[in-house]
Design a protein around this nucleic acid. Structure first.
Lengths: 219, 219
DNA sequence: GGTAAAGTGGGAGCACCATTCCGCTTCGGT
DNA sequence: ACCGAAGCGGAATGGTGCTCCCACTTTACC
């Protein structure tokens, strides 16, 4: 009966060495997924962790489950950045900072970039996702209120744009100056100064989910 | 000894029915790769074409070879758009038009989008690639000369940005209004009005190639 | 320290796909 | 109409990678 969550307890307490191993596996997974994206194999993870594949598979019944766990972790980190942005004094600068931060995290964790670029359909924890979305919306809205970002952009629009950033990030990799360059272009496109009204209607998150779901299915 | 080019002659003339089949296979490949990206299997292609897998594999010794052929075709279509843009009266509008056009083609041919998003390393015909790059540069430079696009952007920069567009396009799919929305944001980011100087240095095509190669290898 | 339960390693099984092979079919020159 | 070569289909092959299984080891409780 395989245990599930990262947290220490659930079901039956989980033996000490098992806990250690589970942790190692997660770390290894993060390492190799960051390096190779979701193309990395379970064996890669096992080798990195110094355990057998069986161990990996018992802790995480499926490669997807493992990936999900790692990605949830990434989202939790994103949340930290979002909180920082919300706590900042300057809403305008905070939004820019957050976007750069996001790109940096995508660069660090290639799997995150790929997920945001939506090559794969992950099951992220619903509450977590909602929180990320809510806070993203807040950071955006504060920047808009401050006049730093054009008004005809919705939170879901930014998510879509982040997918584009993710792709560029995946190509550019760790080269920060180059990455920042394109983030800056996108941010400039979001300034109110660029007053050409945008075509179409602001996207809602519901639309976004539908689009990504469709994309996932058609593979 | 499998034949190679799309053109009618080479090596030994190729029997009439074989030629017909080759053509069907190419069309089928375009259809299924457009629908499913490069995740489509050879069997999918064969079924769509109404031939056996053996036939597909004889005409194109490798799945990659088939994909390359299809993608080269896409690039040729791109060239048509580029020529149109170069022939246009209004260099400023022409650039915008071309970028929208590019996104539309990416939407039509998912495989193209994925290639530009550089998930896969294709071997595009060198001459063709050079021509696309040269003409892209010309379209860009004319728009810059007309004051429609900021000067601190290089042709390779636009290619990189196109990769981001490709990603968004892959998610959005055929929904033109939505797609255009994000293309418009990016274009606004490229206006001179947004005069915040960009960080970093303009990318050169050499850098771009290196980055993409690195990305391909690390999978 | 002894023992039952929990955990482990890594090989076997399985599914999926690109590619190859070969006996049969179709073409096209005479 | 004939026949040799070219082309065809699709079963067989081989490789890759996820998942399952089970004989062996480690833990933790007495």
């Amino acid at each position: 009966m395989p245990p599930r969550r990262t947290t220490v307890t659930e079901e039956r307490p989980l033996r000490a060495d098992a806990q250690r191993n589970r942790h190692r596996v997660l770390e290894a997974a993060e390492t190799v997924f960051s390096r190779n994206g979701n193309g990395a194999t379970i064996e890669d993870v096992a080798r990195e962790a110094g355990v057998g594949v069986g161990t990996v598979c018992r802790h995480f019944p499926t490669k997807q489950a493992l990936l999900d766990e790692v990605l949830n972790e990434s989202y939790r980190e994103l949340l930290v950045a979002l909180d920082a942005a919300l706590g900042a004094e300057e809403p305008a600068a905070a939004f820019d900072w957050y976007v750069h931060q996001l790109a940096a995290q995508q660069a660090k964790r290639r799997a995150l970039a790929e997920q945001m670029a939506s090559e794969l359909v992950m099951t992220i924890d619903e509450a977590l996702k909602r929180e990320v979305r809510t806070k993203t919306a807040q950071v955006l809205e504060r920047a808009q209120a401050a006049g730093a970002i054009r008004d005809d952009i919705s939170p879901a629009d930014t998510s879509m744009l982040f997918a584009g950033i993710a792709q560029i990030t995946a190509v550019v990799g760790g080269d920060q100056p180059v990455r920042d360059r394109y983030v800056a272009v996108m941010l400039d496109g979001l300034r109110p100064a660029a007053a050409t009204p945008l075509p179409g209607k602001p996207l809602r998150f519901g639309d976004l989910d539908r689009l990504k779901a469709r994309q996932g299915r058609s593979r």
